[in-house]
Design a protein around this nucleic acid. Structure first.
Lengths: 197, 197
DNA sequence: TCCAACTCCAACGTTTTAGTTGGAAACACT
DNA sequence: AGTGTTTCCAACTAAAACGTTGGAGTTGGA
């Protein structure tokens, strides 16, 4: 069988992503990453350096995907903001491991995040889309664009951050993804709707 | 010096809370917990059992505090919901370690959370406060009470869940706690205001 | 075909960590 | 004071995890 460096690297990183997402930096072992990939542990060290470097590499690659996942082009009204929130929610549902990496990164509280410039750029574009819509009077401008964009992501992500809280808040019938999504899109729409009180 | 079991236990748990909040279950060592408390490691085992039991004990005690931290008695209008969100935000700011425990618990994804009945009861009371206010037509009822309460907590907690995202979203001048709080209370108020679009 | 460079792995050394043990000091009670 | 119990700790054991090494198989070019 032919050597295949690229494929080996890819499999190792895929495995590392899954393990780190499931157990975090402290709870993951290099041994398990290698075993899951079916490749010898030593490859991790020659390709990626030590454990924390590997973690940083995974974060850099995967979280760029998260940031770029659901692009916002044009927000032509509050409903578009609601739809955007729904799309972000769907992305979280489809890629829970990436969401978990994002949360783990937040808990590590690094002074600077890997790939911060590139990811910052992606987030900034989102903020700009909100800003443009506000200037065009298409959505409410009573919350600064950056905060509004951030809070919309908060609504979409909270279920994945604290699932145990969601469980405890719904005593009788547990909430379904569908009912959560409905509440979410409505909430995001409302945030983007001007106060007419 | 006299023995003092209660004080020893208290100091160990205080230390464990700080360490677990900072590094999570996997990233914390029993050795460090003991050293921080200035007490021998062996005491941890006789008093609390093994590491995961200690973690569960910390979660149970501390997260009961979080749940009960900011009681909601009477929500007499949308502004009261905004004020409540602000109070939750202030609580997070004053007790970041408890917020982090909550997030770490969420990432562990336990099938059942320690003290779930008691904590569930506390959350349920919050939901009931929202429900009463909706029935009395004091706040908007277009989002189910449980979801509305949950989403208000989402708005308040997201800054602490993903501080790195908050940083990246504010390129020029970083957001201040004060500006975040203003945006948050306004957003929560809007969620509780009926659609008059 | 020879050889240098590269890919991969089994086995190893070292450090760290969870968890235990034997014993000394303090207490409580008679 | 004497005796048994409890609190506490220094030192230890066993296992796990990080990271390395020596060598065998593979490639590609002179």
């Amino acid at each position: 069988m032919a050597w295949n460096t690229a494929e080996t690297k890819r499999r190792l990183k895929e495995s590392a992503t899954a393990e780190f997402a499931a157990h975090g930096l402290g709870g993951t072992t290099m041994e398990r990453i290698a075993r899951r990939a079916g490749i010898n542990k030593e490859r991790l060290y020659t390709y990626f350096g030590d454990k924390s470097k590997l973690f940083a590499a995974v974060l850099a690659d995967e979280l760029n995907k998260v940031a770029a996942a659901v692009p916002v082009e044009h927000l032509d009204g509050p409903e578009a903001v609601g739809a955007y929130a729904g799309a972000v929610f769907d992305y979280h549902a489809a890629h829970p491991e990436l969401t978990r990496l994002l949360l783990w990164e937040g808990l590590l509280d690094l002074p600077q995040v890997p790939e911060e410039p590139a990811r910052g750029e992606t987030y900034r574009r989102k903020v700009e889309a909100f800003d443009r819509a506000q200037r065009a009077k298409l959505i409410s401008d009573d919350i600064p664009a950056a905060d509004l964009a951030f809070l919309v992501l908060a609504l979409a992500g909270w279920w994945y951050a604290v699932p145990q809280m969601a469980r405890m808040m719904h005593p009788g019938e547990p909430s379904t993804p569908a009912s959560s999504r409905t509440a979410l899109t409505r909430a995001a729409t409302k945030l983007a709707t001007p106060f007419t009180g």
